[in-house]
Design a protein around this nucleic acid. Structure first.
Lengths: 150, 150
DNA sequence: CCTTGATCTAGACCCGACTCTAGCTTCTAG
DNA sequence: CTAGAAGCTAGAGTCGGGTCTAGATCAAGG
């Protein structure tokens, strides 16, 4: 039932270094316990929490925010509002990020399509080419009118 | 028609420091020209290119990749395929990132909803709470069956 | 008994992308 | 003529998020 840091590393996908680092950073709710010889012991719950952490991280939540969350948890019941507020804040942030990426993607797709056509016609070199002022100018106009669906 | 670094900073939204930094990093296609007194002079095209750079950056393209692109441009016509390949690689990357964010978002929304319900019923403290093994376990099961639409 | 491998700590190092500082020059307005 | 703003360079510092190293300890197997 007890897991060594190596096992946790393997199962969580984090390095042992990262696990110790996370601990120093206060990202564990309950202080990591030790064997009499000083070695860390983890349990299933730790793995579950780490899975959540990794998910939050992959969505761009900074460690500092995860720490804030876990600090609220440590303070015990009574601050559920703050916890929710924090999560919703991040939700909003992720939504905005998605929109930003989608917009860039639309512009890029459009440009790539235009470029492909030009290349096909042998008139290449007229896209995102800052050493070709003519093209740059033409193109940046196009950029102002991205695909209708954007 | 000539722009000083300060003007470019203001109009591009980048700091003068960042502009000099970008130049050192080789992110300009044509070497930035200087006045006889050593001061940099920029032109509209530079602003246009910087706008593109900023867009690419905001979509997560690393400076190193922008540099690769601009190096292809500097080499002149003939490598349009490589340029397109580079842009498509990034496109794919952005698509994947969007998917990743959408997935996390779905999970977060679900969890937040569950949490809200629990809080409403006064049974709070049962979500993403690694010091409450019981809750953690229940919850991580829920996590394995995210909203049907995910 | 000895090696191998996992662990420990403290602290150095890395990378990306800037940001800022020091010390100097140069332009512009009063 | 002079103060202040804006520029210049080289190089140091920052921040986030780790990663790695050195040197010590410990447990197990041959």
């Amino acid at each position: 039932m007890d897991l060594s840091i190596g096992e946790v590393a393997e199962r969580s996908g984090l390095s042992v270094h990262a696990l110790r680092f996370y601990e120093r950073e206060g990202l564990f709710a309950n202080p990591v316990r030790r064997l009499s010889n000083g070695r860390r012991i983890y349990h299933e719950e730790d793995l579950e929490w780490l899975a959540i952490c990794t998910k939050l991280r992959s969505s761009g939540m900074p460690l500092a925010m995860i720490r804030q969350y876990i600090e609220l948890v440590r303070q015990g019941p009574g601050n559920e509002h703050e916890r929710l507020e924090l999560l919703r804040r991040h939700e909003t942030h992720v939504e905005e990020r998605i929109r930003e990426l989608q917009e860039t993607l639309a512009v890029m797709r459009y440009k790539v399509r235009v470029y492909e056509e030009h290349v096909a016609r042998g008139e290449a070199d007229r896209l995102w080419n800052p050493s070709h002022p003519d093209a740059a100018r033409t193109d940046s106009h196009q950029e102002c009118r991205p695909p209708q669906g954007a």
